[in-house]
Computed example of a mutant assay.
Amino acid sequence: MRILVTGGAGFIGSHLTERLLSMGHGVVVLDNLSTGDMANLAHSKDNQNFEMVIGSVRDQALVQELVEKCDAVIHLAAAVGVKLILEKPSLSIHTNVNGTENILHAAANGNKLVIIASTSEVYGKAEKVPFSEDDDLVLGATANLRWSYAVAKMLDESLALSYSYEKRIRVIIVRLFNTTGPRQTGYYGMVLPNFVSQALKGDPITVHGTGDQSRCFGHVYDAVESLTRLLNAPNAIGHVFNVGNDEEVSIYGLAEKIKKKTGSKSEIVKKPYSEVYGFGFEDMQRRIPDVRKLEQFIGYRPRTSLDQIIDDVIAEQRAAMGIAPVADSGKNDAAA
């Protein structure tokens, strides 16, 4: 197939582009490089089946042109990261909603398959875990701008399912849970690469809040595997899927694990949310995906261990900093 990947110069998008090219597909990447980086596509740019277009998903005419010459779209482009969302909430809403509407409108003209990347953020403050795709979504007050991203992504999902119902286009929605791994930057608040960077530099490892809040981290390779399998799963059309690992860890526990694995002397410090994000910031205590539906439909579920994910991020950052690899004191944590 010829596949349009929006946000293809980003963290997940660049890994997905590499995988699709290795499978023999043609790939057109659309990215405005606001958070993406051409360096992420170093392994793809010389492939004869690769095309790079610098532009925005908010450009309706450009989106229409690109979708027309492709067989499928994997729509990853979005304004993401807690830091960016709180700094520019209107940008998050406009980019996410307008971009998704442009993709769906263009795809409807040729009945193109569209995979829409949503987020675990849509579950909001729900307390029932693990989160299942048909669960109620519980968000906070609109006065708290922290929820603007979740609201935008909920609208993305509703738009996609509405187009599927009204115009019969083929749509699949994936809710990504804390995907991480090589190439992810911590600049926009992504916790795992931030912790690794702080540990390797000997800076304080900064935990926001009490550190008791927990998350599940999935490897980008598992997310890419899930997306490529969904491309070839006609039974998945019209459905919503959680995509993530269900291995839970507290944020303070994550900091301890990274400190041990890096052999760092860094101090782990706690910083109140009010000092980081301002008064009234809300966070979710737990976020665990139920991935049984994904496994049922594609015969696969993300299983890469947290230890392996951390090892991969440490190795990449050590190489970038010119730090020689060292014996990993936390290597046998899982067997201990």
Rank of each mutant, 00 (worst) to 15 (best):
I205R: 06
K201W: 08
A223H: 03
V224G: 04
I169K: 02
P193K: 06
L227T: 02
M190P: 09
T228Q: 04
K167V: 03
R183V: 11
L230C: 05
L200C: 10
Y188N: 08
V174T: 00
V174L: 00
Y188W: 09
M190I: 07
I205V: 11
Q184L: 15
G209F: 01
F195S: 04
K201R: 12
L227A: 03
I173R: 02
S162K: 15
H208Q: 13
P204W: 07
Y163P: 08
F177G: 00
L161M: 15
Y165D: 14
L227M: 14
P234H: 06
S197N: 13
S214D: 09
Q184E: 15
S164G: 15
Q198V: 05
K201V: 05
L230P: 01
A160S: 13
V174C: 00
N194M: 15
T228D: 05
I172H: 02
R175C: 08
V207A: 06
L231N: 03
T179A: 13
T210V: 01
H219A: 15
V207P: 00
C216S: 08
V207F: 03
T179M: 07
H219Y: 12
G186Y: 00
G218M: 09
E166I: 12
Y187H: 13
V171A: 05
G209Q: 01
N178M: 08
K201I: 08
Y165G: 11
A199Y: 05
N178H: 14
A233E: 10
S214G: 14
P204A: 13
K201S: 13
S162Y: 14
T210P: 04
C216P: 02
Y221W: 11
T185E: 13
